[in-house]
Design a protein around this nucleic acid. Structure first.
Length: 474
RNA sequence: GGCGGCAUAGCCAAGUGGUAAGGCAACGGCCUGCAAAGCCGUGACUCCCCGGUUCGAAUCCGGGUGCCGCCUCCA
């Protein structure tokens, strides 16, 4: 049974979706006014992995992740760059997919954009006004927080405590400082849409409620996001959605911890952000993904370049075990036996599931993956090799672990553990290896080493093994 | 001030009350012409400190210290 930590109850609970075998899941996606940074990437990788694991466990997952493409920050940034706000948003949506694909994030079933859902948003706001939870004030619409008695249940706050922090910006017409905007009256020059309350645009929180309700219905199974969204964003989503539907909005609220840099939260306001694409220029995406899964998702995670350096090396253990398995498949003897090894592999599978069942403990799962790789690598020293059934079973486990953790992308169902080799490169390297081999035979080490050294400079590592010389990408 | 979290080897990190996973780094060895990769082996007399519960605690309880986060846009 999968146990998940639910922010709403502050406990680990058995995961029971509303409908058996199906999971409806919503994760707050990026506001598209910049390239995504490592912090965004953590949320993406964490919930992508949650989704992958649920699928591994046989759930049919319907996954929705939005783009916030209408927002104050987009408008501001567009003005700075003298671009149309819609164009700016589109540019970063495209960039989002480039980055997310690199780091092996599966596409959501739906990626709804705010700009495509104005009718749904307006309808939801109207409903809230009709039900008396919201009010119109000079072209703005606000949610009356005090009308929703359960306000604060997610973030564990009392209305009385919140009072101190709340404030009214100049130009706002709130009746109560705690109220928040559902609809903002347009200022001249800003993108706007017509509504029963005049020209304007949606507030930040209402979009997620509207889109989640549209695609997933009134009661989601999982709602996720970074823990900085707990308050006010998710608290407000609950208020809006539950006020509108009268039903619990989400059964399980999952929140990931932050990335820290030098003991401080990585955040835009502190200016200490690292863009994902910058980091991926220096380190392979699989290393970044390994880094992001190396700590339990709710714990803080410290970013250091040294760590990624190490992660990249750690991956080579996994890589070599995979390459061994692929090769060994062809050489293995088709005899039965290996019952003991098969039993051990079964145990591995169970331990892996137990780790992930426990609130998606990827650190533990990763440790098991490394254990498995280590075991497989030790077979490489064995003669004879383990029997074919054992190798097949190990291979299928390897694929399964990788598929859940998403470390290496797959092509035609098989993990791709290294950069693509084109036929031309393959042939060129083969040629140089042959020349080097001739040099080695006449003990011309200078030439042999020169070829290896120069190829290394080009990112190609030669490895001499008893079976001949192999090459791989650095 | 209110609320929440964390303190485990040089670094990162898991850990169900029963005797400390895994990764990086380091050091021996095997393999190699030398390498690389991989394999074999070596690490915490102990889990921030002090008390307590228990036959037994890194794990539970109380107190202390230190660090971080949220309460305002932020994944």
């Amino acid at each position: 049974m999968i146990q998940v930590y639910n922010t709403l109850t502050k406990r680990k609970e058995p995961f029971v979706p509303r409908e058996p075998g199906r999971v409806r899941m919503y994760v707050c996606g990026p506001t598209t006014y910049n390239y995504i940074h490592l912090g965004n990437a953590r949320a993406l990788v964490v919930f992508d992995t949650v989704r992958r694991y649920l699928e591994y466990r046989g759930f049919r997952v319907f996954f929705v992740q939005n783009f916030t493409d209408i927002d104050d920050k987009i408008i501001k940034r567009a003005a700075e760059e003298k671009m149309d706000p819609r164009e700016l948003a589109l540019k970063y949506i495209e960039a989002y997919f480039e980055d997310a694909d690199q780091i092996n994030i599966k596409r959501a079933d739906v990626h709804p954009r705010v700009s495509d859902h104005l009718p749904e948003i307006i309808e939801l706001i109207s409903l809230l006004i009709d039900k008396g939870f919201a009010y119109v004030a000079e072209g703005d619409v606000y949610f009356a927080v005090r009308k929703f008695p359960e306000y604060g249940k997610l973030s564990g706050r009392q209305l009385s405590e919140l009072r101190a922090g709340a404030r009214v910006e100049p130009g706002e017409n709130k009746k109560d400082p705690l109220d928040f905007a559902l609809w903002k009256k347009a200022k001249p020059g800003e993108p706007s849409w017509s509504s029963p309350w005049g020209e304007g645009r949606p507030g930040w929180h209402i979009e997620c409620s509207a889109m989640a309700l549209k695609y997933l219905g009134p009661e989601l199974d999982i709602h996720g996001g970074g823990s900085d969204l707990i308050f006010p964003h998710h608290e407000n989503e609950i208020a809006q959605s539950e006020a509108a539907t009268g039903r619990p909005f989400a059964r399980y609220w999952l929140h990931n911890g932050f990335i820290t840099v030098k003991e401080e939260k990585m955040s835009k306001s502190l200016g200490n952000i690292f863009l994902l694409r910058e980091v991926m220029e220096a380190y392979p995406p699989s290393a970044v993904r390994l880094f992001l899964l190396s700590t339990h998702y709710r714990s803080p995670l410290a970013y250091t370049p040294e760590y990624l350096e190490g992660a990249a090396k750690a991956l080579s253990r996994l890589r070599s075990s995979w390459l061994f398995l692929l090769e060994a498949q062809n050489q293995a003897e088709e005899f039965s036996g290996g019952a003991e090894q098969l039993a051990r592999l079964d145990e591995w599978e169970q331990d892996f599931a137990a780790a992930m069942d426990d609130d998606f403990n990827t650190a533990r799962a990763l440790a098991l993956f490394f254990d498995l790789a280590h075991e497989i690598n030790s077979w490489a020293e064995l003669r004879p090799l383990p029997p074919a059934p054992v190798l097949r079973r190990a291979l299928s486990l390897w694929v399964a672990f990788n598929r859940v953790l998403g470390l290496f992308p797959e092509r035609r169902g098989l993990p791709v553990v290294e950069q693509e080799r084109t036929e031309v490169i393959e042939d060129l390297v083969k040629l140089l290896v042959e020349i080097r081999q001739e040099a080695r035979q006449r003990k011309d080490w200078a030439t042999a080493d020169r070829i290896r050294e120069e190829l290394k400079n080009l990112g190609i590592i030669l490895e001499d093994t008893p079976a001949g010389t192999r090459w791989r990408w650095a």
